[in-house]
């Protein structure tokens, strides 16, 4: 049970950590879902070609960075609306992957890793331990970067008061771009982790984890350590709703919606209780 929760936590956490960086820099990253998908697909391509899981992780990260580079150019250079460009990122991934899949593998659906997938993934317990510890270590590193380094100070300033950064001669766009690329890498690795664990790429393999990650950012109070806790909670519900198929007679299709419902509830609970009050006086009862 704990193993499966930790294993479910890894991709959510990685994606959410990247999202925390962009959110801190002032960009709510709607495109994470597409970035995960892209990372997953290219990791399968790389593992099939090389037989190495590490190559798969690198390929996933590189693919995520490449797509988020396009995303950041649209947002920063072309000044596109960040939400619409995020949607475009998701659609682009969902549309392009079948094309590439058709071109490379002659199928637009399921792509299996061309090697013995259990050998690639390694021993499940060791693998889970490595990834879980690794992703928590990354969370600690992200926290250190955000709160202990000049880079992190500038990232937080880019989101908190870009003008204050600009009058000190530092470009906020530069730090937005850096975090978007980092978020691409993190989401790409998250996708690669899922695909190499399952040994297969299936359409919609991300299954909404990009959106769950977005909510995990807020539920974790935009703090990497809090995000770890939020990711564990969401992972717990994911495992629970999977396990529920076994011990209840609720149909499996229905349970697919549960993670979203839980996430929605979390978002609303956060909105009600999680925000600071900054009000002097009270806003008028307009309605």
């Amino acid at each position: 049970m704990i193993t499966s929760i930790l294993s479910a936590m890894v991709p959510i956490l990685l994606a959410a950590l990247g999202g925390t960086l962009t959110e801190r820099a002032g960009v709510l990253n709607i495109g994470i879902e597409g970035l995960i998908l892209t990372g997953a697909f290219f990791s399968v391509v790389a593992v099939s070609a090389t037989g190495s899981m590490v190559a798969g992780l690198f390929a996933g990260a590189a693919a995520g960075v490449a797509l988020s580079a396009v995303y950041s150019v649209a947002c920063i250079e072309l000044r596109a609306n960040i939400f619409v460009a995020g949607l475009a990122t998701n659609l682009f991934a969902a549309g392009m992957i079948p094309f590439l899949s058709e071109t490379f593998f002659g199928t637009r659906g399921v792509v299996r890793i061309a090697h013995d997938s259990s050998r690639i993934a390694g021993d499940p317990a060791i693998r889970t331990a490595v990834f879980a510890l690794g992703s928590i270590a990354i969370a600690a590193a992200v926290a250190a970067i955000l709160f202990r380094t000049p880079l992190g100070m500038r990232i937080r300033a880019a989101g908190g008061n870009p003008d204050a950064l600009a009058v000190r001669g530092v470009s906020p766009s530069r730090y937005r771009r850096i975090t978007m690329l980092a978020s691409g890498a993190f989401a790409g690795i998250a996708g690669a982790e899922i695909a190499t664990r399952l040994g297969v790429y299936v359409p919609n393999i991300s299954a909404g984890r990009g959106w769950i990650a977005l909510v995990a950012i807020f539920l974790g109070a935009r703090n990497p350590i809090g995000v770890v806790a939020a990711s564990v909670v969401f992972a717990g519900f994911e495992v629970l709703s999977g396990a529920a198929q076994g011990f209840t007679n609720v149909p499996g299709t229905l349970l697919l919606g549960v993670p979203f419902l839980v996430t929605l509830a979390a978002m609303i609970v956060y909105s009600i209780f999680g925000r600071r009050t900054r009000i002097q006086g009270q806003p008028s009862p307009n309605e």
């Binding site: 396009v70 649209a74 072309l78 596109a80 609306n81 619409v84 682009f92 549309g95 079948p98 094309f99």
Partner: peptide, 21 residues
């Protein structure tokens, strides 16, 4: 030849269209 051509076209259009909207 089969794939989600429509989605790709939409995505590319969305990347560019809000530069002005």
């Amino acid at each position: 030849f089969t794939f989600q051509l429509g989605m790709v076209v939409q995505a590319v259009i969305l990347f560019f269209v809000t530069g002005s909207v």
